[in-house]
Design a protein around this nucleic acid. Structure first.
Length: 853
RNA sequence: GCCCGCUUGGCGGAAUGGUAGACGCAACGGACUUAAAAUCCGUUUCUGGGAAACCGGAGUGCCGGUUCGAGUCCGGCAGCGGGCACCA
């Protein structure tokens, strides 16, 4: 028996699709559109099977929507700027551009072998000036609109990457790529005003109905909105005030101290005349900010001797401390401490012997005896006491009353604080988009005139010394000031690479347009209807893109503010890990597994089988894509990636699993090419009257069409595959009878069409076998007949007191009396009743009869 | 600490409040074969009785509740995973 020749077949149909331009697409206002997009890859080298899971899912959606008549945009490109290219340049003397373009070449061919339905004419790579020149213009527009600005600030410095990182790129105090503990440095940097949109980014989350709840919650937490008040404390003996932020103005009468951040301007001012304070501030700045340090760090303060005057009570003086736990970046960089109702303030108060006065009385507590010992009362239920005009109010009312009084006294106002901070976009790296500004000693910072764009990267760079090659370049940065014509220097920082990925989805609509976007194209295609990618971008790329789209809208580029109407976050592909006796990671192909599941390396030495982890270069637990496609074909890999786990969960890649998918590919191929009964001619009608078994099979065919369609709508690919396998099993078991050939044909055609989006090459091949002439890719999605899908007889479960005692076969929609009679006629039911008369009978039509005694 | 999510056979996983374990993987037994591969058939939640056909009992992390009926809904607990966190 001939095995399916995947390689030959897949190449044949890929050539056909390519020659006929089947997946070329143009905007067409007369047709409904559907934009499917998978997060585009960084061209890091070669693809492994873990990379292609989300492309496969996107392709299923694209092909399915196409078959349903949508005008489907499904593009692919390359997030081509980034640090690995520079690291490769340093390590192996290859130019980042050459390295990147070469990788793109390799990966493009790998993707093409997967048979993905991309319109390859729309391919973009973000490292080309034809792409990045547009974002240079965007930046200048943002600058003009006040959405981009430069400031000196304490930034996250990655000592391994020799560059700044955004807050979103610091994970547990370490660089997101390098894993190195991040240091703080004071640098002048470019920022985008994402905080300007904090409220809108938060509010609009509720409109993203087709986003995973999880991602929305993560963005909500990241934005971190807190409603509260600013309080201006007058300072004794000074004319200025100290501003603090609090979410609990209701506890102002419980205040015991104020504290400011070590890098607060007031701290700097006081330290100038106070050596011990200066030493304390210096010590705080030396301290790391990693999680481990913070966990163990002692809460420490330094009494400045300054006194803050309480806004509500004349003569009440609070000591002002510099404290190591107060952050300059949040709120006002200063707090007031209420020890009774904040655990950290309580610890601080005990340490420095400050008073602890409770002002919120818990429900049922006695105002005369209630005290706070070692645990602050942080709940917001209770009544305010010890608080003058706030006494007797609940917490919410007291917050309002306190804020109102602050306003009256001009000692404060309501405000909202966000955890979100502006997006620092400067990177001290070569392989990125140059920031189009010029530094002039006379004119200051001057934008590059739009007519001079793009500012292109110089190609003749050297990576011999650490730091930014652009800064070391002998000539590139030297230029003239566009304003005064004098000597000036170019900005040598480049954009964070998340800049490029914040608008690429819109560029795909008109990828060769001379301007960034053609309005008729972006208006037609955006927003992306279905976006697919990893959860790791929940607060990176996905938040930046939402902000960027709003900024582009503000500057007149686009009409939409939300880029992605639907989002699906797929699980990762995992694999066992292997370690040699020396403790070195081993690739799966270096390991041989024995029957008892023990493992040996190439030289026969024992190998430790480690945890199942996400496929990654660092763990070497990779399965190369080429080897799998060579051995089994793209369709087998696609089927496995879709069928073995629900798409949002992780999937473990195993040899046995891919073998199982390969078996099914061959089985289906055989079923069509060597059918168990002679197939009727194409287009032959199914007879009206069929033997019972064939009628039942026909019902199953139509139910499968109905249910698989529903599964694809709901991203339940694994369930859909299971249903089609069930149908295949039933078709294999068909017995020859009158009309069998027509029913089998109907079933096979349905199965092939339903599997088409998942296994497009096999689909074309089998469709060609069944219906020579038309491409499956051009066929409509199959329809089902509801009358046929409805079962003629149903199996009803029969319970006595909720316990299953048997089943009865009845005609669909049988009368309740008939169902009851049939159920009571069962001997097992009679036995369970033990002579007692049924008290009640519950009947759910076509499902269950429950006899209650 | 706060906020999410998850917990079903040996494994991945199915089940609009209505027959728990579809579909697959693995394992075991058998057929075909000189043999292997491939393929095909069968068994496989646990457990009691039985030579067998078969007849029973228990079972979806744990405890409780709602319901004629709970994997599914509600309350509590545990474990695992994730996000945020000196955030005032």
């Amino acid at each position: 028996m001939a095995r399916y020749n995947a390689k030959e077949t897949e190449e044949k149909w890929q050539a056909t699709w390519r020659e006929r331009g089947v997946f070329h697409v143009e905007a067409d206002p007369a047709r409904p559109k559907y934009y499917v997009l998978e997060m585009f890859p960084y061209p890091s080298g070669k693809l492994h099977v873990g990379h292609v899971r989300n492309y496969t899912m996107g392709d299923v959606v694209a092909r399915y929507k196409r078959a349903q008549g949508f005008n489907v945009l499904h593009p692919m490109g390359w997030d081509a700027f980034g640090l690995p290219a520079e690291n490769a340049a340093i390590a192996s003397k290859v130019h980042p551009k050459d390295w990147t373009l070469q990788n793109i070449g390799v990966m493009r061919e790998q993707l093409k072998r997967m048979g993905l339905s991309y319109d390859w004419r729309r391919e973009i790579a973000t490292c080309h000036p034809e792409y990045y020149k547009h974002e240079q213009k965007m930046f200048l527009d943002f600058l003009a609109a006040g959405l981009a600005y430069r400031k000196e600030s304490w930034v996250n410095w990655d000592p391994v990457e020799h560059s700044v990182l955004a807050n979103e790129q610091v994970i547990d105090g370490r660089g997101w790529r390098s894993g190195a503990p991040v240091e703080k440095r004071l640098l002048s940097q470019w920022f985008l005003k994402i905080t300007e949109y904090a409220d809108d980014l938060l509010d609009a989350l509720s409109t993203l109905e087709r986003w995973p709840e999880r991602v929305r919650v993560m963005q909500e937490n990241w934005i971190g909105k807190s409603e509260g008040a600013r309080v201006f404390f007058r300072l004794k003996g000074r004319s200025d005030t100290l501003e603090v932020f609090t979410t609990r103005p209701d506890t102002l009468f419980g205040a015991a101290f104020c504290a400011i951040a070590p890098n607060h301007p007031l701290a700097a001012e006081l330290a100038a005349q106070n050596k011990p304070l200066a030493d304390f501030v210096a010590e705080c700045n030396r301290m790391g900010t990693s999680e481990a340090v913070l966990e163990t760090a002692e809460k420490r303060g330094f009494d400045t001797g300054l006194k803050a005057l309480h806004p509500f009570l004349q003569g009440w003086e609070l000591p002002v401390y510099v404290a190591n736990f107060v952050l300059m970046e949040y709120g006002a960089g200063a707090i007031f401490g209420c020890p009774a109702h904040d655990q950290r303030d309580l610890d601080f108060a005990r340490k420095y012997k400050l008073p602890v006065k409770p002002v919120v009385l818990p429900p049922d507590a006695d105002p005369k005896s209630f005290t706070v010992a070692n645990e602050a009362y942080t709940e917001t239920s209770g009544t305010i006491f010890n608080s003058e005009f706030l006494n007797g109010l609940d917490v919410a009312a007291a917050k309002r009353a306190a804020s109102d009084r602050l306003m009256q006294l001009k000692s404060g106002e309501r405000t909202i604080a966000y955890r979100l901070r502006d997006w620092g976009i400067s990177r001290q790296r070569y392989w990125g988009c140059p920031i189009p500004v010029i530094h002039c000693s006379k004119c200051g910072i001057v934008p590059v005139p739009q007519a001079q764009l793009p500012v292109t990267l110089p190609e003749d760079v050297s990576f011999d010394q650490p730091g930014n090659p652009l800064a070391h370049h002998p000539t590139w940065k030297h230029t003239t000031c566009p304003q005064c014509g004098g000597k000036a220097e170019r900005e040598t920082d480049t954009f964070d690479t998340f800049f490029e990925s914040s608008w690429y989805f819109a560029r795909f609509c008109s990828p060769r347009a001379p301007t960034a976007f053609k309005s008729n194209e972006v208006d037609y295609w955006l927003a992306v209807d279905q976006y697919i990618g990893g959860i790791e971008h929940a607060v990176l790329h996905l938040l930046y893109s939402r902000f960027f789209t709003r900024a582009l809208k503000q500057c007149g580029y686009l009409g939409v503010k939300e880029p992605f109407a639907g989002l699906f976050t797929q699980g990762m592909v995992c694999h066992e890990t292997y370690k040699s006796a020396e403790g070195e990671w081993l690739f799966p192909e270096e390991v041989t597994k024995a029957q008892d599941n023990s493992a040996l390396d190439a030289k026969g030495r024992p190998v430790t089988i480690g945890r199942i982890e996400k496929m990654s270069k660092s763990h070497k637990n990779l399965v190369g894509l080429d080897a799998i496609v060579d051995a089994y074909g793209a369709d087998t890999a696609r089927l496995y990636l879709l069928s073995d786990s629900p798409p949002e969960r992780d999937l473990e890649w195993t040899d046995a699993g891919i073998e199982g998918a390969w078996r099914y590919v061959n089985r289906l191929h055989r079923l069509v090419t060597e059918p168990p009964v002679k197939l009727a001619a194409a287009g032959a009608r199914v007879p009206e009257q069929l033997p019972a078994a064939l009628a039942a099979l026909r019902g199953a065919i139509h139910r499968t069409i109905r249910d698989v369609t529903d599964d694809l709508e709901k991203f339940r690919f694994n369930r859909g595959v299971a249903r089609i396998r069930e149908l295949t099993n039933a078709l294999e078991a068909i017995e020859d009878d009158a009309g069998a050939g027509t029913v089998l044909r109907e079933g096979l055609e349905a199965a092939v069409r339903l599997l088409g989006p998942m296994m497009p090459h096999l689909g074309e091949e089998l469709w060609h076998e069944l219906r020579p002439g038309n491409l499956l890719a051009d066929e409509q999605w199959p329809r089902f007949d509801p009358a046929l899908a409805a079962e003629e007889t149903v199996t009803m479960a029969v319970q006595v007191n909720g316990k299953l005692r048997g089943t009865v076969e009845l005609p669909r929609n049988a009368a309740e009396d008939a169902a009851k009679a049939a159920a009571l006629a069962l001997p097992t039911v009679a036995k369970a009743l033990a002579g007692k008369a049924p008290r009640k009978t519950i009947i759910v039509p076509n499902r269950i009869v429950n006899v209650v005694v």
